[in-house]
Write a protein that binds this DNA or RNA. Sequence first.
DNA 1: TGGACGCGCTGA
DNA 2: CAGCGCGTCCAA
Length: 857
Amino acid sequence: MEKYAKVIVKNNSQYTDNLFTYKVPEFLQDEICLGHRVLVPFGKGNKPIEAYVFKIIENNDEDIKTKYIYDILDERPILKRQDLELIHWMKNRYLCTYMDCINLIIPKGYKLNNYKSITLHPSLKNIDTYEIYDLSEKLSENKRFVLQSVLDNKGKIKLDKLVDKKIEYSTAVAEESELYGIKDKKTLKRKVTDNLNSLLYKMKEESLIDLRWEYKSIKNEIKVCYISLKMDYVEMMFYIKENKIRLGEKQKQILEFLKNNEDVELNDLVQLLNASKSSIKSLEEKNLIEFKYEDFYRESKSNFNYQNKDVILNEEQNNAIEKITSEMFNEDKKPYMIHGVTGSGKTEVYMEVIDYALKQGLDSIVLVPEISLTPQTIARFKNRFKDIVGVFHSRLSEGEKHDVFREIQKGNIRILIGARSAIFAPFNSLGVVILDEFHESSYKSDKNPKFSTLEIGRYLVKKRNITLVMGSATPSVEEYYRAKNGEYELIELKKRANNKPLPKIEVVDMKEELKCGNRSFLSNKLRLQIEQEIKNNNQVILFLNRRGYSSFVSCRECGYVFECKNCDISLTYHKSQNIGKCHYCGYEEVIPKVCPECKSKYIKEFGLGTEKIEEEIKQIFEGVRVLRLDKDTTSQKYEMENILNKFQNKEADILIGTQMISKGLDFKHVTLVGILSADMMLNFPDFKSFENTFQLVTQVSGRAGRSEKEGKVILQAYDTDSSVIKRIVNYDFDGFYEDEIKIRKLFNYTPFNNMISVVVSSKNEYMVKKNITNFYNTLVYLLKERGISDFDFILGPNPCSISKINSNYRWQILFKDDNIEINLLKGIIKYICITKRELVFDKDVNISIDINPNSIL
DNA sequence: TGGACGCGCTGA
DNA sequence: CAGCGCGTCCAA
């Protein structure tokens, strides 16, 4: 019997995104399992690369040549059977590659290093050195160099090292790398590598050298070494005498110490006794002590102090908990949607549900939006559940991620708090997934696979019968619609946990302020209120959803606007560094004093940003302590904790921030929230801008009055007649929902439709146009073939609203599944963009397919 | 994608 | 013909 394995190979090529069949060698036949990470030879040069076993078959009737699998890389399969199913499902749902999906769910920190190594040809191995030198004399300079390097390096050298040597050698010979012109190091290295490679192949042909791929499997792990005596102390003294073992003074000290202490960590021992590692090592070699290695858990710790509050659950909360826990083992339960006003104690409900699951032996995942993965949230869970709480988010290092996944698999972590990708954590018995603030757009991934965490959650409910609890004070319109249609179990929490009313929202008309001659961003009312609250020893939060100093800089003389070199976006001014920054690609440039176009000096910044607010607030309220929380002030690790700690300890009176301050923060002295410009978001050209505004403003408002003191909100806007603002003021979610769902229905937006966005981009604008037209024509052709002649559901091709990002020109086609079956449409798009990609598209254009995108810019 | 290979140009 | 740059093909 012959065994074959169908595998997915790990490389980042679009063109190898299918199953490859390999023969399983005899010695692996009993061992190999689905989901194993294996090593296979790939390509002409049989380069060893990683692959994942997706299928195992006996006897292969397909007529394809097969190579043998080299080896299995880990003892146990790295992917479970259910992971493989999920990968298939995701690949089809989000039209991405297998590897995109695999990368998301395999434990991190596994790496395969492969390199080419050069040795002397076997026929030269046994001849003496003199003969080799004689031989090399007859060769060209370069070949001699290779042979010499191999010999100098004990008969074996890695290609990489040879390249370095060669560059060093060439630069020494030729003046200042003149040989290759002045190029950056990377291109130089590539070039040298290429040239050496072709030389090496020739030398291999000539039987001068041997060329082979080698590899090393690396696990990013740290072990801790614990040391104990190998036998009883008295017994050992005997043993030492018996065998005439000579010990140094330090070594005697060590043994003495270990007599009273077991399992001492190596580093502690070194420090405590000032001992050297070698003296310890030699004790082990003398068989007197033993080492025990254990996994070290690189846990990202936080220095945030959270003060526990005593909580008594109210009736609404208890009902919710009762409902969810009582159905936990039901077969066909629905996901739960908790719609609870800000401060209604949703987190307490989550914790009770998790606690219940824990007692039933089930693990839980708590998902929060990236920006609200604050120390506060984490501390809250850790305080209650202690060490079994793990944290997972994209800012962890590879090693930290690896350790978290390992601790999960070991069962040491039972509750994981994390951002969206934490939903793929490898729990053994997952019972509960919590999706907090589920309306947040960050639950949709922006890189491949462009998955929606909600959809994955629903998948897990269906396939693995987990309990999915999604909570929000401001559900998204589409999910609320689904809840109303019975797809979810809707649970309403209408009261705040502290039984205080929601803070009153007052609207200030900024047009009126202007008329009265107040040209500042601060209305008189808000200014007076801030003064008042600070006098009363309370704290204030000011919210503006834009970081930086001003939104753009322009010349008042000629109208020149500073724009990003790489993107179709104006630069945001950052005054502290006097630079314009592109918030898309990170491009920066110093803003000059004179206009680069007309040389006038009338350069001025326009629009508001948090940096400017901070500056002016400090001027207006002298002596007031101000903190600013946005992406710019929190770029360094722990900076966010520091700011939040300071604010909590009342080391500041005012906290200014972007949407980072809108979620999950709970400060008891905050009595006033100022929303500086509600219109800013409202006028955003996106069909979700109303919804986003409603959500954000409601969330921020909820930061006020969370304990005994009552809170208040002042909302500044120009367009005070806007229906959205009226709904916000009255906390009228239902009204807002009714307004919005009508619009959605009218224009056929989600939830009434699916939308697919296909963006083609490239550095070359002409290529983009050509390719997207090609795509469109192919699509229309295929649709006609299927008898479809009404193409109303196709919008475009058009340039994207942001027509250039990172020097890439972007064109888009949008699809709504109006008159066409979504799966048919997806099938066709997949066929063109993936299966037959090379027939329709040029190689160097990027294609991005997004199902139900967050934004269509 | 990126590794192997083949082709053609240049200069000795 | 060695040395080098470049384009093309293909992966089990």
